[in-house]
Simulated assay, not measured.
Amino acid sequence: MHQLAIVHDHPDGFQPLFAALSRAGIDYLPVHTAGHGFDPIGGQPPAPVIFNRIAMSSARHGVHHPVYYAMALLDHWAGQGALVLNGADAMAIDASKARQLALINRLGLAAPATRVVHDSAALLAAATTIGFPVVVKADVSGAGSGVTRFDDRAALAHAAEAGLLPPSANGVWLCQALVNPRDGTTTRIEVLGGRYLYGVDVAAAEDALMLASPDDRLQRLAQRRRRRAEPPPNLIAAAEMLAREAGMEVCSIEYMIDDVCGTPRFHDINGLSPFVENPMDVLGWDPHDRLVERLWHHIRRMGG
Protein backbone atom coordinates (compact mmCIF):
# COMPACT_ATOMS: atom_id res chain seq x y z
CA MET A 1 0.00 0.00 0.00
CA HIS A 2 1.18 3.53 -0.80
CA GLN A 3 1.72 6.12 1.94
CA LEU A 4 -0.47 8.74 0.30
CA ALA A 5 -3.05 8.98 -2.49
CA ILE A 6 -3.82 12.23 -4.33
CA VAL A 7 -7.32 12.37 -5.85
CA HIS A 8 -7.34 14.88 -8.70
CA ASP A 9 -8.91 15.75 -12.03
CA HIS A 10 -6.09 17.66 -13.73
CA PRO A 11 -2.60 16.10 -13.54
CA ASP A 12 -0.81 18.98 -15.22
CA GLY A 13 -1.95 21.34 -12.49
CA PHE A 14 -0.28 19.37 -9.71
CA GLN A 15 3.23 18.85 -11.03
CA PRO A 16 4.74 21.18 -8.37
CA LEU A 17 3.06 19.12 -5.64
CA PHE A 18 4.14 15.83 -7.19
CA ALA A 19 7.71 17.14 -7.47
CA ALA A 20 7.73 18.20 -3.82
CA LEU A 21 6.41 14.79 -2.75
CA SER A 22 9.14 13.07 -4.76
CA ARG A 23 11.83 15.29 -3.23
CA ALA A 24 10.56 14.33 0.23
CA GLY A 25 10.64 10.61 -0.62
CA ILE A 26 6.91 10.07 -0.07
CA ASP A 27 5.45 7.04 -1.82
CA TYR A 28 2.32 8.54 -3.34
CA LEU A 29 -0.31 7.37 -5.82
CA PRO A 30 -2.04 9.88 -8.13
CA VAL A 31 -5.70 8.89 -8.55
CA HIS A 32 -7.16 10.56 -11.62
CA THR A 33 -10.97 10.58 -11.58
CA ALA A 34 -11.27 10.18 -15.37
CA GLY A 35 -12.31 6.57 -16.03
CA HIS A 36 -12.17 5.78 -12.32
CA GLY A 37 -14.69 3.57 -10.54
CA PHE A 38 -15.04 2.01 -7.09
CA ASP A 39 -16.87 -0.78 -5.31
CA PRO A 40 -19.06 0.79 -2.58
CA ILE A 41 -19.41 -2.56 -0.83
CA GLY A 42 -15.87 -3.92 -0.90
CA GLY A 43 -12.35 -2.91 -1.80
CA GLN A 44 -10.00 -0.88 0.34
CA PRO A 45 -8.44 2.59 0.28
CA PRO A 46 -5.26 2.87 -1.81
CA ALA A 47 -3.40 4.56 1.06
CA PRO A 48 -3.93 5.37 4.74
CA VAL A 49 -3.93 9.11 3.90
CA ILE A 50 -6.01 10.49 1.03
CA PHE A 51 -5.61 14.09 -0.15
CA ASN A 52 -8.43 15.57 -2.23
CA ARG A 53 -7.40 17.98 -5.01
CA ILE A 54 -10.61 18.13 -7.07
CA ALA A 55 -11.27 21.56 -8.61
CA MET A 56 -14.78 22.97 -8.37
CA SER A 57 -14.22 24.65 -11.74
CA SER A 58 -14.36 21.17 -13.30
CA ALA A 59 -18.15 21.38 -12.95
CA ARG A 60 -18.26 23.84 -15.85
CA HIS A 61 -17.12 21.06 -18.21
CA GLY A 62 -20.59 19.46 -18.27
CA VAL A 63 -22.36 16.41 -16.88
CA HIS A 64 -19.18 14.32 -16.64
CA HIS A 65 -17.46 16.54 -14.10
CA PRO A 66 -16.06 14.62 -11.08
CA VAL A 67 -17.29 16.80 -8.18
CA TYR A 68 -20.15 14.66 -6.87
CA TYR A 69 -18.44 11.42 -7.84
CA ALA A 70 -15.40 12.43 -5.78
CA MET A 71 -17.60 13.18 -2.76
CA ALA A 72 -18.96 9.62 -2.83
CA LEU A 73 -15.50 8.15 -3.35
CA LEU A 74 -13.91 10.11 -0.51
CA ASP A 75 -16.77 9.33 1.87
CA HIS A 76 -16.42 5.62 1.07
CA TRP A 77 -12.68 5.58 1.77
CA ALA A 78 -13.14 7.56 4.98
CA GLY A 79 -15.70 4.96 6.09
CA GLN A 80 -13.07 2.28 5.50
CA GLY A 81 -10.68 3.96 7.92
CA ALA A 82 -8.54 6.21 5.70
CA LEU A 83 -7.68 9.72 6.84
CA VAL A 84 -9.20 11.87 4.10
CA LEU A 85 -7.97 15.47 3.94
CA ASN A 86 -10.49 17.93 2.50
CA GLY A 87 -12.94 15.04 2.45
CA ALA A 88 -16.59 14.75 1.51
CA ASP A 89 -17.95 17.08 4.23
CA ALA A 90 -15.41 19.77 3.40
CA MET A 91 -16.03 19.26 -0.28
CA ALA A 92 -19.77 19.79 0.19
CA ILE A 93 -18.97 23.29 1.43
CA ASP A 94 -16.36 23.82 -1.26
CA ALA A 95 -18.95 22.85 -3.88
CA SER A 96 -21.61 25.33 -2.75
CA LYS A 97 -21.23 29.11 -2.68
CA ALA A 98 -24.54 29.22 -0.81
CA ARG A 99 -23.21 27.02 1.99
CA GLN A 100 -20.01 29.04 2.14
CA LEU A 101 -21.93 32.27 2.65
CA ALA A 102 -24.17 30.65 5.26
CA LEU A 103 -21.05 29.56 7.17
CA ILE A 104 -19.54 33.04 6.88
CA ASN A 105 -22.75 34.49 8.33
CA ARG A 106 -22.97 31.94 11.17
CA LEU A 107 -19.49 32.92 12.27
CA GLY A 108 -20.45 36.59 12.46
CA LEU A 109 -18.47 37.72 9.42
CA ALA A 110 -19.69 40.06 6.70
CA ALA A 111 -20.34 39.03 3.09
CA PRO A 112 -21.88 40.71 0.03
CA ALA A 113 -25.68 40.97 0.11
CA THR A 114 -26.92 37.74 -1.50
CA ARG A 115 -30.04 35.77 -2.38
CA VAL A 116 -29.96 32.06 -3.28
CA VAL A 117 -32.46 30.94 -5.93
CA HIS A 118 -33.18 28.00 -8.21
CA ASP A 119 -35.39 29.47 -10.93
CA SER A 120 -35.45 32.56 -13.12
CA ALA A 121 -38.55 34.14 -11.54
CA ALA A 122 -36.93 34.08 -8.11
CA LEU A 123 -33.70 35.36 -9.64
CA LEU A 124 -35.42 38.42 -11.10
CA ALA A 125 -37.18 39.10 -7.80
CA ALA A 126 -33.91 38.75 -5.91
CA ALA A 127 -32.11 41.16 -8.21
CA THR A 128 -34.89 43.72 -7.79
CA THR A 129 -34.67 43.40 -4.01
CA ILE A 130 -30.87 43.78 -3.93
CA GLY A 131 -30.71 46.50 -6.59
CA PHE A 132 -28.69 46.66 -9.78
CA PRO A 133 -25.91 46.15 -10.73
CA VAL A 134 -25.82 42.56 -9.53
CA VAL A 135 -23.57 39.57 -10.03
CA VAL A 136 -25.13 36.18 -10.78
CA LYS A 137 -23.00 33.20 -9.79
CA ALA A 138 -23.41 29.47 -10.25
CA ASP A 139 -23.55 27.74 -6.86
CA VAL A 140 -20.86 25.29 -8.00
CA SER A 141 -18.04 27.23 -9.61
CA GLY A 142 -14.36 28.01 -9.33
CA ALA A 143 -11.52 30.06 -10.81
CA GLY A 144 -13.94 32.86 -11.68
CA SER A 145 -16.14 30.60 -13.81
CA GLY A 146 -19.93 30.85 -13.63
CA VAL A 147 -19.95 34.60 -12.82
CA THR A 148 -21.84 37.25 -14.84
CA ARG A 149 -22.62 40.90 -14.15
CA PHE A 150 -26.01 42.43 -15.02
CA ASP A 151 -26.56 46.19 -14.93
CA ASP A 152 -30.36 46.25 -15.28
CA ARG A 153 -33.46 44.07 -15.11
CA ALA A 154 -33.89 43.94 -18.89
CA ALA A 155 -30.44 42.41 -19.40
CA LEU A 156 -31.04 39.83 -16.68
CA ALA A 157 -34.51 38.96 -18.00
CA HIS A 158 -33.12 38.51 -21.50
CA ALA A 159 -30.34 36.23 -20.24
CA ALA A 160 -32.83 34.13 -18.28
CA GLU A 161 -35.22 33.80 -21.23
CA ALA A 162 -32.43 33.05 -23.72
CA GLY A 163 -30.74 30.45 -21.51
CA LEU A 164 -27.65 32.63 -21.06
CA LEU A 165 -27.38 32.49 -17.28
CA PRO A 166 -24.13 31.05 -15.91
CA PRO A 167 -24.28 27.24 -16.26
CA SER A 168 -25.16 25.69 -12.90
CA ALA A 169 -24.25 22.08 -12.15
CA ASN A 170 -26.92 21.81 -9.45
CA GLY A 171 -29.52 24.28 -10.74
CA VAL A 172 -28.80 26.85 -8.02
CA TRP A 173 -27.71 30.47 -8.51
CA LEU A 174 -26.59 33.25 -6.24
CA CYS A 175 -27.69 36.81 -6.94
CA GLN A 176 -25.23 39.11 -5.25
CA ALA A 177 -24.70 42.83 -4.83
CA LEU A 178 -21.73 44.10 -6.77
CA VAL A 179 -19.14 45.24 -4.22
CA ASN A 180 -16.49 47.75 -5.26
CA PRO A 181 -13.31 46.51 -3.58
CA ARG A 182 -10.98 49.11 -2.13
CA ASP A 183 -7.93 49.71 -4.31
CA GLY A 184 -9.42 47.29 -6.84
CA THR A 185 -8.12 44.23 -5.00
CA THR A 186 -9.33 41.21 -3.09
CA THR A 187 -7.08 39.42 -0.62
CA ARG A 188 -6.54 35.67 -0.62
CA ILE A 189 -5.46 34.09 2.66
CA GLU A 190 -3.96 30.61 2.40
CA VAL A 191 -4.55 28.37 5.42
CA LEU A 192 -2.78 25.07 6.13
CA GLY A 193 -3.63 22.85 9.08
CA GLY A 194 -5.83 25.59 10.52
CA ARG A 195 -3.00 28.13 10.56
CA TYR A 196 -2.18 31.11 8.39
CA LEU A 197 0.31 30.32 5.65
CA TYR A 198 0.50 33.52 3.58
CA GLY A 199 -1.60 36.18 1.89
CA VAL A 200 -1.67 37.65 -1.61
CA ASP A 201 -3.51 40.60 -3.09
CA VAL A 202 -5.41 39.86 -6.29
CA ALA A 203 -6.57 42.55 -8.71
CA ALA A 204 -10.36 42.23 -8.60
CA ALA A 205 -10.87 43.26 -12.19
CA GLU A 206 -14.44 42.82 -13.40
CA ASP A 207 -13.24 42.15 -16.95
CA ALA A 208 -11.19 39.16 -15.77
CA LEU A 209 -13.95 37.65 -13.65
CA MET A 210 -17.07 38.46 -15.61
CA LEU A 211 -16.25 39.15 -19.23
CA ALA A 212 -13.47 36.74 -20.12
CA SER A 213 -13.94 33.20 -21.38
CA PRO A 214 -13.42 30.42 -18.80
CA ASP A 215 -9.97 29.59 -20.15
CA ASP A 216 -8.98 33.27 -20.13
CA ARG A 217 -10.24 33.59 -16.56
CA LEU A 218 -7.92 30.83 -15.42
CA GLN A 219 -4.96 32.43 -17.17
CA ARG A 220 -5.69 35.92 -15.92
CA LEU A 221 -6.32 34.80 -12.37
CA ALA A 222 -3.01 32.94 -12.29
CA GLN A 223 -1.17 35.91 -13.74
CA ARG A 224 -2.66 38.27 -11.17
CA ARG A 225 -1.75 36.32 -8.02
CA ARG A 226 1.61 37.96 -7.57
CA ARG A 227 1.62 40.59 -4.84
CA ARG A 228 2.38 39.53 -1.29
CA ALA A 229 -0.17 40.77 1.24
CA GLU A 230 -0.03 41.18 5.01
CA PRO A 231 -3.64 40.88 6.21
CA PRO A 232 -4.43 42.31 9.65
CA PRO A 233 -4.48 39.84 12.56
CA ASN A 234 -8.27 39.95 12.99
CA LEU A 235 -8.87 38.93 9.38
CA ILE A 236 -6.22 36.21 9.58
CA ALA A 237 -7.99 34.86 12.68
CA ALA A 238 -11.31 34.99 10.81
CA ALA A 239 -9.87 33.03 7.88
CA GLU A 240 -8.39 30.42 10.21
CA MET A 241 -11.78 30.05 11.90
CA LEU A 242 -13.52 29.63 8.56
CA ALA A 243 -11.04 26.94 7.48
CA ARG A 244 -11.48 25.01 10.73
CA GLU A 245 -15.28 25.23 10.67
CA ALA A 246 -15.30 24.12 7.02
CA GLY A 247 -13.16 21.11 7.97
CA MET A 248 -10.53 21.97 5.37
CA GLU A 249 -6.93 20.92 5.92
CA VAL A 250 -5.78 23.33 3.25
CA CYS A 251 -7.78 26.10 1.63
CA SER A 252 -7.81 29.71 0.59
CA ILE A 253 -10.20 32.32 1.98
CA GLU A 254 -10.94 35.48 0.02
CA TYR A 255 -12.22 38.82 1.27
CA MET A 256 -12.44 42.35 -0.06
CA ILE A 257 -12.75 45.70 1.68
CA ASP A 258 -16.03 47.34 0.66
CA ASP A 259 -14.93 50.72 -0.66
CA VAL A 260 -18.25 52.33 0.30
CA CYS A 261 -18.19 51.50 4.02
CA GLY A 262 -14.80 49.92 4.73
CA THR A 263 -16.32 46.59 5.79
CA PRO A 264 -14.25 43.45 5.09
CA ARG A 265 -16.56 41.12 3.15
CA PHE A 266 -15.65 37.44 2.85
CA HIS A 267 -16.89 35.83 -0.33
CA ASP A 268 -15.03 32.61 -1.17
CA ILE A 269 -13.76 29.45 0.52
CA ASN A 270 -11.66 27.44 -1.93
CA GLY A 271 -10.62 23.95 -0.86
CA LEU A 272 -8.35 23.45 -3.84
CA SER A 273 -6.14 26.35 -2.72
CA PRO A 274 -4.05 26.89 -5.87
CA PHE A 275 -0.78 28.27 -4.58
CA VAL A 276 0.67 31.42 -6.06
CA GLU A 277 2.68 31.00 -9.25
CA ASN A 278 6.39 31.82 -9.07
CA PRO A 279 6.37 31.49 -5.27
CA MET A 280 10.09 32.17 -4.91
CA ASP A 281 9.58 35.57 -6.54
CA VAL A 282 6.43 36.44 -4.59
CA LEU A 283 7.07 34.78 -1.22
CA GLY A 284 10.74 33.84 -1.15
CA TRP A 285 9.82 30.22 -0.33
CA ASP A 286 7.74 27.41 -1.84
CA PRO A 287 4.44 26.67 -0.04
CA HIS A 288 4.44 23.16 -1.51
CA ASP A 289 7.30 22.30 0.85
CA ARG A 290 5.17 23.37 3.84
CA LEU A 291 2.27 21.34 2.48
CA VAL A 292 4.46 18.24 2.15
CA GLU A 293 5.65 18.69 5.74
CA ARG A 294 2.03 18.68 6.84
CA LEU A 295 1.27 15.59 4.77
CA TRP A 296 4.27 13.84 6.36
CA HIS A 297 2.76 14.66 9.76
CA HIS A 298 -0.47 12.88 8.85
CA ILE A 299 1.32 9.92 7.25
CA ARG A 300 3.35 9.35 10.42
CA ARG A 301 0.22 9.71 12.54
CA MET A 302 -1.44 6.97 10.47
CA GLY A 303 1.60 4.70 10.87
CA GLY A 304 2.89 5.18 7.33
Rank of each mutant, 00 (worst) to 15 (best):
G194A: 07
A204W: 01
V202C: 04
D216L: 03
D207E: 14
S213E: 12
L209P: 14
R224L: 14
A204T: 00
R195E: 10
A208T: 14
A212H: 05
R195N: 08
E190K: 06
A203T: 15
L211K: 08
A222G: 14
A204V: 01
L209M: 15
D215E: 13
E190H: 12
V202H: 01
Y198N: 08
A212P: 02
I189D: 00
A204H: 14
G193M: 10
Y196I: 09
M210A: 10
R195T: 10
S213I: 02
M210Y: 13
R195F: 03
E190Y: 13
D201Y: 09
A204F: 01
R225F: 02
R217F: 06
R195D: 09
V202M: 02
D215C: 04
V202E: 00
A205T: 01
R188K: 11
R217P: 03
R224K: 10
I189N: 00
R195K: 11
R188N: 04
L192P: 08
A222F: 07
G194I: 07
V191C: 00
V191Y: 01
A204P: 06
D201F: 06
G199N: 11
A204I: 00
A203W: 02
R188L: 00
V202P: 01
L197K: 11
R225T: 11
V202F: 00
L192Q: 06
Y198H: 15
A222N: 13
Y196Q: 05
E206P: 15
R195Y: 02
G194R: 07
Y196D: 08
R188A: 03
S213A: 12
L221A: 06
I189K: 00
L192E: 06
D216R: 05
R188T: 13
E206I: 04
D207V: 12
D215K: 01
L218M: 04
G199K: 10
A205S: 15
D216Q: 04
A222H: 13
